[in-house]
Design a protein around this nucleic acid. Structure first.
Lengths: 339, 339
DNA sequence: TTGTAGGCGTTATCAT
DNA sequence: ATGATAACGCCTACAA
């Protein structure tokens, strides 16, 4: 009957060296209060015994877990994937671990994840919320001095946020199409369903349309029923089946941009002459598509490091609670052959 | 000077209700040892005070954190992203949280992540290791009765593993090309660099070549220098610049398959007549490419749930330490126009 | 320079 | 049915 070997604790080292646990604790943390020889001995023995401080015990007494929570509403999105990656990498350098959860577009799951993380004493939260217009539960966190940074852009001034300025990006993309002479421009979700309040891109599209003196028409807004290319193609069919079909389309994600391209290929529609396409996110897939697609490029690395910096700042100043700051990271339109 | 509100504890509820902390603890956990009225009262008060048990304190005393660690060597890979997503979702249902780290292809980082997670008392580890041939540090975890499941397939019999049978998949993909009449078949990394011992796909390719009585030639193995399509195209140029160029190519990832397709488009090479392509992973991107690409499809959901099940089983039986089991999940070749 | 006592929030054991 | 006490592993304050 084998037993799993118990982890070595401060007490074990104390017993072995003859010092008290607290001397050992101080020595390992390099306190000058402990004599040099004692420190050396203790450290050597600790290394020999393969001692690793129990962070759980540390957390309990220090009231700090060196862990932050990352909640994304969907991990399959390549941009959010990159964000997750950069966040973990950056926080790792600062000695933090990352608890990860995906809310799967379900507000209940989002709440559950927040509760679960708080119960685990996370020091702060980075969250890409499901509904960009329902932020009350997150603002409440801030009011309770719980360090929280949203990974979106928001106009709200009572919550910290670092994120892509989707409205602005959508505006730029649409305006670009208008400048290319298009007067009838469709847009392809997803993200347009009413239940999910992420209307930034739709707003930006509308802003551009109206600024150019064109009229916003609901029939020009198509919403794929899921995140597959197939669904995008189907939505595209609807859009292009209109009596007065658009000559250009702003796709709010690269996946839908590829869907538009796919539809064009199947129907032998010339890109960009008969149909212009602009995407969003600028992934490798659209940049290197059979016809390279124009897209809004976002600096994910910068976004992630700024969000992390902000979060760490909030953690270091959770008592004073610095004024909320919303930092939009502007995207940049990359023009390619598709427009 | 505002203070962050201290979290409510068992003691707070005890004070308010007049019971002892221990009675409160039992009542909240529904012990029948506590009278019905007392339980009701305590639960009501706890709810009113918005009590949430401190899992850190629980972890310390129960010697169990209800947290598992997930370490991937690269999160940008769409398959690993799906795995992460499914793992988190499945474990969430079982009440576990997920600590996530990406090792970025650096063995040191992998070790650091493992240490960091153990210090946080994770109950188990799911890991897609960097080097599939250097598993000693992971086998050591198992020997120490630390529940660990690899997310790869391995022939080793002293470590638990649930993962894609890459060798078999590569074999099937290559054999399919052979059956289509190809005699000179190239293969496109990445994953072939010597430093990273993930040679499963290369082995499978070689197995098929040799089984068919063809000869394995090093010049037919091209390795892109990074994970971009551009790098894949460059590697493809090398491959197709050979004096005796291949008529088919097995791309070990969908991204490189797209790169091959891209190269073909640029050089006006007919697919599949002048060049056949088979990819790996079967993402939406290749299925819906301008020419749909054949690929090895893997059931990520099944893989993730089986890995989680296995891990939970190991956690429940960490003392007895059930015999190691390596469960390959076979991929399925989906034939499309590219071959 | 080192040791002792107390506490972080919870659960388990043993009394009452 | 409920309470007191100790323990998990660590850190801080204070005493020696």
């Amino acid at each position: 009957m084998s037993m799993t070997p118990r982890k070595v604790t401060l007490a074990d080292i104390a017993a072995k060296t003859g010092y008290g646990t607290n001397t050992v604790s101080l020595a390992l943390r390099g306190s000058t209060r402990i004599s040099q020889p004692a420190r050396d001995l203790i450290r050597r023995v600790a290394a020999e015994m393969d001692y690793v401080p129990n962070q759980i015990a540390q957390s309990l007494v220090l009231n700090r877990s060196n862990t932050i929570g990352l909640i994304l509403h969907e991990i399959t999105n390549p941009v959010l994937t990159s964000v997750a990656h950069m966040v973990q990498k950056t926080l790792g350098k600062h000695g933090y671990s990352v608890l990860f959860a995906s809310s799967n577009g379900d507000p209940e799951e989002e709440l559950r994840a927040i509760a679960a993380f708080r119960a685990r004493m996370v020091d702060g939260l980075l969250i890409y919320p499901i509904d960009h217009s329902k932020l009350d539960h997150l603002k409440a966190l801030r009011r309770n001095h719980f360090p929280t940074v949203l990974l979106i852009h928001t106009d709200a001034d009572d919550i910290d946020a670092v994120g892509i300025d989707e409205r602005r990006g959508a505006f730029d993309a649409t305006m670009h199409l208008i400048e290319r002479g298009h007067r009838r421009i469709g847009t392809l979700g997803p993200g347009f369903t009413a239940s999910i309040g992420n209307v930034g891109k739709l707003q930006g599209y509308r802003d551009a349309i109206e600024k150019a003196g064109l009229t916003y028409e609901a029939e020009l807004v198509a919403t794929p029923f899921d995140h597959s290319i197939a669904a995008g193609v189907r939505a595209m069919e609807e859009l292009m089946g209109l009596e007065n079909r658009p000559t250009a389309v702003f796709a709010t994600s690269d996946l839908t941009a590829l869907a538009a391209l796919r539809w064009a290929a199947r129907t032998h529609t010339k890109i960009p002459d008969e149909l212009a396409i602009v995407g969003f996110d600028d992934t490798d897939y659209v940049a290197q598509a059979s016809i390279p697609i124009s897209s809004i490029h976002n600096d994910v690395e910068k976004l992630a490091t700024e969000a992390v910096d902000r979060l760490l700042h909030l953690i270091d100043n959770k008592e004073t609670l610095p004024p909320a700051r919303s930092l939009p990271t502007p995207g940049q339109l990359i023009v390619r052959e598709s427009s």
